[in-house]
Design a protein around this nucleic acid. Sequence first.
DNA 1: GTTCGTATGTTCAACCTTGAACACTCAGTC
DNA 2: GACTGAGTGTTCAAGGTTGAACATACGAAC
Lengths: 213, 213
Amino acid sequence: MAVHTTRMLLLGAVAMFEPVNGYQIRRELVSWRVDEWANLGPGSIYGGLSTLVKLGQVVRHDVDDEGRTVAVYEITQSGRGELARLLGEGLETVTLFNAVGFHAAFGMLPLLDRDVATRHLEVRLHEVDRALEAWDPGSGHEAPPHAVHGVRLWLATLREERVWLADTVGRLRSGEFDLAGEPWRWVPPADDPGRQMAVDGERYRALLGREPS
Amino acid sequence: MAVHTTRMLLLGAVAMFEPVNGYQIRRELVSWRVDEWANLGPGSIYGGLSTLVKLGQVVRHDVDDEGRTVAVYEITQSGRGELARLLGEGLETVTLFNAVGFHAAFGMLPLLDRDVATRHLEVRLHEVDRALEAWDPGSGHEAPPHAVHGVRLWLATLREERVWLADTVGRLRSGEFDLAGEPWRWVPPADDPGRQMAVDGERYRALLGREPS
DNA sequence: GTTCGTATGTTCAACCTTGAACACTCAGTC
DNA sequence: GACTGAGTGTTCAAGGTTGAACATACGAAC
């Protein structure tokens, strides 16, 4: 894929919850129902994490957690840079018939600063306009009637996205949503799986000799 | 992917143009711009064809075309069955954020009978309604506000698709589009790459000892 | 006549995805 | 106290995708 969704989700999950192990990431992504639409089996997670280690974008520590060895991961400076790049690419790139990369990136919007996120969505708005022009009816392309009709669905989808994007940019500008470095207004429900992440995070931080934050 | 887009496109291309070689398929799919949105590099085509041979869904003949050996493929009865199944699955299955499988299948609509195609799209209409219900606002799912907002784009997309599908079923019922076994009303332009396919097809048929149709 | 580009036809190693399965713990229950 | 099922944490072989690169022919331009 033009947009590396799996890598982006993994890097994002590590950035949000580090220090974190593979299973925690899996649990969290499943709770977001991401496994229903992205390529996210257990193999993709553990394999992807190994790749990210090789690329120097995350580091792996094998910590001893009450007698058992667990692999926990932290993101590196290089990983943060790559994550920002991937999120920007995912937010800006309009891919034909396929919005998986965008939805994955949009789901991690809180990792970005408000102005950065807004700028990415403004670029996307522009890209959507370009796509609308490029696929305009009668713009050359000889094709059988059913194929021409199929393009109409794609165009209708794009027009809806344009409306939604314009609205979303407005909401961001007016301070809606909780972005990076801003106080968290949304309160997760009591049974939120994020609670478990926090508990495990504390333990792993302690085992790594970090100050528990 | 839940829908095996590459396999479906390959089987469909073989069904439409047999006897055909890998490069012809590539040329044709590129002319449909399929390579821009499906996974369709040369490797996927030749690799995919080998897999289909192993599965007994196409047969490979190494014919001698003026001194050079060319691999040409024909679909088998089993392949036709599988193609019908894949097209039905592609037309009926609503996948989150991703309409690649549907658009690939819709592009090959002329391989199906009018009543079969219509029934598949009616099933899809029903599936879209179910998805609309399942993702209805406030249906349980606790999630951060930006994620809830993201779902709104998906819902808007689905509503547009519903409208388009209802329209499309109507058009099919009223005899629009040229489907399997019906006289071909659309005439390709003079520079259509399909012409070349016809020429090569004749030659390969002759080399295989088939009656040129 | 040689260089250049383009079209034809295909291969392959590196990489990624899939999902079944392993190995273990812990709580409940018959 | 043995069995069952669910949760935790990970591995791996089989299969699919990527895209650069190979090999060859053919026409055009210098």
